[in-house]
Write a protein that binds this DNA or RNA. Structure first.
Ligand SMILES: [Mn+2]
Ligand SMILES: [Mn+2]
Ligand SMILES: [Zn+2]
Ligand SMILES: [Zn+2]
Lengths: 133, 133
DNA sequence: AATTAGTTTAGAATTATTCTAAAAAAGACT
DNA sequence: AGTCTTTTTTAGAATAATTCTAAACTAATT
């Protein structure tokens, strides 16, 4: 997937050359990369940059809600550019992570018995398993 | 809460002195401790033991399904003795983690649009937020 | 242009966790 | 009990993801 330069915007965040290219990498290859995978990839582009910068960019995106972190056990954190609410399925055969959308109109509070007064700022749902066939 | 010695059993696992006492610590103080918190606590009991042993015991319990790991961002892994299916709520004001049960008869597949053929072996649901009042 | 504020960078530091290999404990058998 | 075998515990070293530091650079502002 090709992303135009003017689409590389994160509201409220100054888009430097490095941030643009990291964001482009996330949008163009939606494969939930880790910081170091992303860093390796950046080295192959015409915007090589340091690993610290990759971490700095990702942190900025997460703070601004444009990117989500995906935590799977103790594995390196992976990053997801899909900013609509969703969960993740970790296929143990392939190692790949797939986005899983919420069913229409459904909400975590339909699944869980939340104590009264609970105000949720972040939801992380991670499934592990395999796909038959 | 007091737990009798004969309740300190995990099916299929040899219960050594150390394993019994770590398991007892988890059952008696259900507060989702990290390995190092648990280690500090063990030092105050009459079964002080090494940090490596705490990790080894916890790993054995997790393998045997008696204990669940709780991953919250990059914080140290926390351990939960509640072996029925549930999620976790991380109260950002207090830092405490609370168990959140599934609503009666509800299932992740009621909330999420899982691709056909998906076989789930592990579910981790972690919410972050605060409680008003 | 000069000043200021924010960003990038290399490399060092941190730290949760895992590994190693030797000692201790537990189980099996006699 | 005593011997043999397997598993567990342990201290300390190693690993590796992430964060920190402080200097160089870039971008925005006056
Ligand atoms: Mn990639
Ligand atoms: Mn405790
Ligand atoms: Zn995703
Ligand atoms: Zn729990």
């Amino acid at each position: 997937m090709k992303v135009q330069d003017h689409q590389l915007q994160v509201p409220g965040l100054r888009m430097t050359k490095q941030r643009k290219e990291v964001y482009r990498a996330l949008l163009e290859n939606q494969d939930h990369p880790s910081a170091s995978e992303l860093h390796s990839y950046m080295q192959t582009t015409d915007s090589p940059m340091s690993l610290a910068t990759v971490y700095n960019c990702l942190e900025a995106f997460v703070e601004h809600g444009a990117v989500k972190q995906v935590n799977i056990d103790r594995e390196p954190t992976r990053y997801c550019e899909n900013s609509v609410q969703h969960g993740h399925f970790h296929d143990q055969k392939t190692g790949k992570i797939h986005d899983v959308n919420f069913k229409n109109g459904m909400n975590v509070s339909d699944l869980l018995d939340l104590p009264l007064g609970t105000e949720i700022s972040n939801i992380e749902i991670t499934l592990k398993g395999s796909i038959s066939n």
